[in-house]
């Protein structure tokens, strides 16, 4: 039997404590999109090193004297998220290969839209220098202006375009 989700406020409190511990121990916040960036650069560098090194954006992260992009704080943290998420799914009996979609959406369409959404996050997070975790949540915790701008623009836009995307979810 599937176990219930945790009370959201309690979960939020624990999430806040994890973030606080991160800031207290390491002086930096949590993140996610940075790890995806590092992974992208690493893959690109493995397939096409010349292109990657000469690209003005990727080139900042690779080349002589630079560590492998995969040896970054966020990559290790995201590896932890995979493990932690898996453990949670295991103890709460939620491990299952499944596609989750709105009631009117077929799995293949859902995959397509999920990939598009991921790509948009991949692009947007570069301009904002972080996503919901690294820019919005961690930024808000240290009261950075960037954090609040990220939160307002992500969720504000979400509400503005929610109507257009309603058939995906309700």
């Amino acid at each position: 039997m599937k176990t219930k989700y945790m009370n959201p406020y309690l979960a939020g409190f624990f999430l806040g404590l994890v973030l606080l511990a991160t800031i207290f121990i390491t002086g930096r916040g949590l993140g996610a999109s940075g790890a995806i960036k590092d992974a992208t650069i690493s893959i690109s560098n493995a397939i096409a090193p010349r292109f990657t090194e000469t690209n003005p954006f990727f080139g900042q992260y690779v080349g002589a004297g630079k560590e492998n992009p995969l040896k970054s704080w966020l990559v290790f943290e995201i590896a932890g998220v995979l493990i932690g998420g898996f453990i949670s799914g295991l103890v709460s009996d939620r491990l299952k290969l499944v596609t989750e979609a709105g009631p009117r959406v077929k799995p293949r369409a859902r995959w397509f839209f999920a990939a598009i959404g991921g790509a948009l996050f991949g692009i947007g997070a570069q301009f904002t220098r972080g996503c919901t975790s690294g820019a919005a949540l961690s930024g808000m915790a240290v009261l950075s202006t960037a954090g609040f701008i990220a939160m307002l623009s992500i969720f504000g836009t979400g509400y503005l375009v929610a109507y257009l995307g309603r058939k995906l979810w309700i």
Binding site: G85, G117, F121, G124, A150, S153, G156, T157
Partner: peptide, 24 residues
């Protein structure tokens, strides 16, 4: 930052996740 947030906001509606939650 605002432009990126707008792009991510659309991504949230279309994709249903954000990067951290998608990994999870």
């Amino acid at each position: 930052a605002i432009v990126g947030g707008v792009i991510m906001g659309i991504g949230f509606i279309v994709g249903g996740y954000c990067p951290g939650t998608s990994v999870c």
